[in-house]
Every structure is written in C-alpha cells, then in structure tokens.
Design a protein around this nucleic acid. Structure first.
Length: 489
RNA sequence: GUCCCCAUCGUCUAGCCUGGCCUAGGACAUCGCCCUUUCGAGGCGACGACUGGGGUUCGAAUCCCCAUGGGGACGCCA
C-alpha cells in the first residue's frame, strides 16, 4: 500500500481511563500506520459535555505514551489538520450540518426527549421490527420549521435517510457488509446543545483529516451504514473500515474494571512492563502468520497486516500475560526497573537509601530472572536491605537441626579476615562440609534461611557475595543462636 | 423482538479465502519426569479441540444451507 496516503486515527472520548480494549484499538492503528509508513493520529472526541472528565485526557495521553504509542499528529503535537479536539471544531460541524440542511438532506426536529421515549415504548409494546425515530418532523414545511426556530424552540438536526434500498460497505476484516436501509433511522447530527453527535463529527473529521482507514471497535458495525449514508450525502468517498472484535473477560462478558484491572495504568501498577502488554495485546486477535509469540515491537510492526486480524472476540487471559511479562522481565534493563522499584521499596519502608545504585541493580539482576512482575521484585527483596526478623516456620522446622551448629560455627570462624567473594564463600562452605563429613545439602539450606528468612530465592553464593561477609555472618550467627536456643537434640 | 457479526484444545491461536500435505500444528495453564543441594527459569513428555445436523464432492476443519450457542446494535453516549 502507498504509505504516503495511509492515515489512521485513534479517537477516544475523554470519559475515563484508557482501558486495555481501547489500548488494543490504538495499538492496531499504530501498527498499521507504522507498517505502511503511514501516519498515526490522535483525535479527542469530546462532544458529550455531560460525560466529560477532566483528568481523563491526561490519563489517556499518559497511558498511550507509557505503551510507547506516540502519535504523529494530535493534541500536544499539532499537525496540518488540527485542531485535534472536537470541541474546538464546532464551526466545522455546524457548517456541514447547514450544507445538508440546504441540500434538503437533513431537517430540524423539534421532538422532545419525552415524546421520543414515548415512541420507543410504543414500538416496543407492539414488538415492532426495529426501534428508532418515527420521522415525525421529517416532512414539516420549511416555513413552519423556521417559525418554531424563531420562537426559540430547541431542536436537533437529523439526517434524511433514504427510505428504501440498502447500504453496504467494505469491512477490511470481514468483507462486504450489507444492511437494508430500513434499519437506519434518521440519525441525529446536531444535538440541542449545539454539539454534533459522534456520527456527524467523526465522518466530517475523518474526511477532513484525510483518514484512509478507520479501525475501531466492532460495536460500531451497526452504525457504519449511517456513516456511509453521511459520506454519500456529502458526496465523499468513505474510508476503508475495519472493525476490531471486542476483548472479553475470562468469564465471558465484556472486559470491565470489576473483572480485574481493566485500565492500562492499573497494569502498570500491577507490575507489568509496557513491552509485554503491547506484545500480548498485539496477539489478541492478530498473529504474525507463524509461531512467533515473544516479539519486539519492531518485529510486530514488520509482520503486521490487516488481513491477519481475526473477526472473533478473544478472552483476555491474564495468566498468559503474566508469562509473557516474565519473559520480558528476564532481560529487562535493571536501570529502568530500578526507577520503578525505588518508590515501591520506599513504600514498604525499606531503608533503600543506605544502599548505592550498584548494589540495588545487583539485587534486581538476581531477582528479575525469577520474577514475573516488577511487583514481585519489590515484594521479595526485603532481606537485601534488612536482616530477616523471623524464619519461615515450615522451612525452619525442616532444616534447623542441632547437628548443623558446628558447621555454622566453623564457617563463622573461618570467614574472619578472608578476601570475600562468591568463589571464596563457595570454597569455604565446601571445605567446612568436607571437614565435618557433612553434606552441603544439610548446611546450605540452613544458611539460606539464615540469610533470607525464607526457603526460595537466588543462588546462595550469589547472595553471600552481594550481602557481604559482615552481614552474612551476622545473620548466620542469629540463626545459630536461634537453633541453639530453640531446637532440641 | 428486529438486524448485524462470530464459531478449532479450558484460554490465545495455525490451518479455512485457493478442499486432499490434518492420524488438526504451536503457545499459556494443568499434570508428570529431567536439570538445579532452594525458588524460578529451562529441557522432555502427557492431557486436551474442528458446536450439531443436512448437503456439494472421489474427498470437508476448509464450500453451501439450517439449527444451536456467544457477542454487538437498536440514545440529543461514544
């Protein structure tokens, strides 16, 4: 495809946080743009003043940027097709509503919401085929309408939809979709408050911003015919549409906040890496055509194509996300992890300020390979910053035996004054075990518990090395005394 | 209710367009075993699916129809 002309947009409305479904839509648009050498545009659809939320914009920008989906045109960026916030484009919509009015393809409607509600109820009671407006004001004379307008009667502007025939459009994922026009009622274009509806605004903007492909959630499929009708009324060529299937929660319903963390920023807080989330989201409803799963963004971009997008809704499997995150954790840059971890450690009340950056990064290096989430590093690093206060009961019961006491004593004796290192510790421990005729399997687990208070964790000698001889021996002494005091024969 | 969309292991999916290479491949999860004197990672293996019924065809997961199931839409919300 000719990249020069490919222009796609992600068009969220600022009514709350960015959830993973929206993020996936943004991602697919981004991938398509990058793959074709096109332009990824961000546009804010804030035409509903009642649902607008002040913090929402900030949150959306932050989420997108955290994911690495920066836009080439849009708010805070500018571009030749701005402004990119719909509430700043009201004149454009008004002008276009007027064009349709002048052409007799739209008309003012004075029906109150109460009457509309009434009509809806009656239709429902009669089990009529399809809901929608009964076109009450459609044939009102121009004079009569003008009189009402002059009298200050509130009104909306509706599209005069054709009464027979059918509309069809090309869906990039599903193929052609055809709808009988009887399913399309006279859509409201301009609301009483002077703001456009989504339908008018998105069509006008997509046209003026020269959007070539509209990739959006598939809840829009049913409204697309009315969009096509609008393009026809204006005499414009519609873009290619591609409706992305929804993301479902594990129990089948639509993914929502109640069913786990649905917002992008919640995933950040939960310890996920943006690269992993992006990789995971890319594979929800799309695949590269081969068996690759762990794919850096550049590879995803390169492999991306619209016709590999599935039309089937998919379930958001957090377990798989976790696995994938673990894959990214293993090789992640410790410096970056550190900046995430600092506040988390501080929150746990750990005296991290007493340790230098090199030390902290070594802690991270030891833990990142065995953690699936950033938060796991935060939770399992306590003993690198302070002595364990107690010993895990089960492990202690199993390993703390009086027979290891001499070994611990010998280790402490010999450790004095030696040049400490991982190898030195290793040598020392084996020598002691040898001399006493004991298996290291009896001694090492005890030292592990002494050092960390728990049963699992990094390699024992790596920890001995990092912790240093002084701290290590202090902890061994503590465990030694504990055993001496509490363990019988 | 009406209209639209969708349908392969529990989950994400390959295969479907252009029928035969499919005794249906991979991944997550689960369960074994190996490795590692810990945990995790890793290796090996097991379990596990073409929603059902009719066609078309020498042959169907693949094409057609119907049924069923799931999802969406039917707002002066997007």
């Amino acid at each position: 495809m000719d990249g020069k002309n490919i222009r796609v947009r992600f068009a969220p409305s600022p009514t709350g946080y960015l959830h993973v479904g929206g993020a996936r839509t943004a991602l697919f648009n981004y991938l398509f743009a990058k793959n074709t050498g096109g332009t990824f545009i961000l546009r804010i659809e804030d035409t509903d003043r009642t649902r607008f939320q002040e913090d929402s914009l900030k949150e959306i920008f932050e989420s997108l940027r955290w994911l690495g989906l920066d836009w080439a045109e849009g708010p805070e960026k500018g571009g030749n097709f701005g402004p990119y916030i719909q509430s700043e484009r009201l004149d454009l919509y008004k002008k276009h509503a007027q064009i349709l009015l002048d052409r007799g393809m739209a008309y003012p409607c004075f029906c109150t919401s109460e009457r509309l509600e009434q009509v809806r109820k009656e239709k429902e009671a009669r089990k009529e085929q399809h809901g929608g407006y009964d076109r009450h004001c459609r044939d009102m004379s121009k004079e009569e309408a003008q009189k009402l307008i002059d009298a200050g009667t509130p009104y909306v502007i509706r599209l005069k939809a054709p009464l027979e025939g059918s509309v069809s459009f090309m869906d990039g994922i599903r193929g052609e979709i055809e709808t009988p026009v009887t399913m399309v009622d006279d859509t409201v274009l301009m609301k009483t408050d002077g703001f456009p509806t989504y339908h008018l605004a998105s069509v006008v903007d997509d046209h003026h911003m020269e959007i070539s492909h509209v990739m959006r959630g598939d809840e829009w499929i049913a409204s697309t015919p009315r969009h096509v009708l609008l393009y026809q009324a204006f005499g414009w060529t519609p873009p290619v549409f591609a409706h992305l299937p929804v993301i479902l929660s594990p129990d089948g319903g639509k993914l929502s906040k109640r069913k786990g963390a649905a917002s992008v920023m919640d995933y950040k807080k939960a310890g996920y890496l943006p690269e992993a989330l992006v990789n995971f989201l890319a594979l929800l409803g799309w695949n590269p055509g081969d068996d690759r799963e762990i794919m850096p963004l550049t590879d995803i971009i390169e492999a991306f194509s619209m016709n590999k997008i599935s039309a089937k809704p998919s379930v958001f499997d957090e377990q798989k996300l976790e696995w994938m995150n673990g894959q990214y954790m293993e090789n992640y840059d410790p410096t970056q992890l550190l900046s995430e971890l600092e506040p988390m450690w501080a929150e746990r009340g750990l005296p991290v300020n007493g340790f230098d950056e090199v030390y902290k990064k070594r802690v991270i290096a030891l833990l990142q390979v065995r953690s699936k989430k950033v938060t796991e590093i935060a939770e399992n690093a306590d003993y690198f910053f302070k002595d364990p206060e107690e010993f895990a009961e089960q492990q202690a019961k199993k390993q703390f035996k009086r027979m290891v006491l001499p070994a611990l004593e010998k280790i402490m004796e010999r450790a004095v004054g030696i040049q400490w290192s991982r190898e030195a510790a290793d040598t020392l421990f084996h020598a002691v075990a040898d001399e006493l005729g004991m298996s290291p399997g009896k001694i090492n687990p005890v030292v592990r518990i002494a050092l960390t208070g728990v049963g699992g964790g990094p390699d024992l000698f790596d920890m001995l090395d990092l912790l240093g001889v002084e701290t290590s021996m202090r902890r061994i002494k503590k465990a030694h005394d504990f055993i001496d005091k509490n363990v019988e024969g």
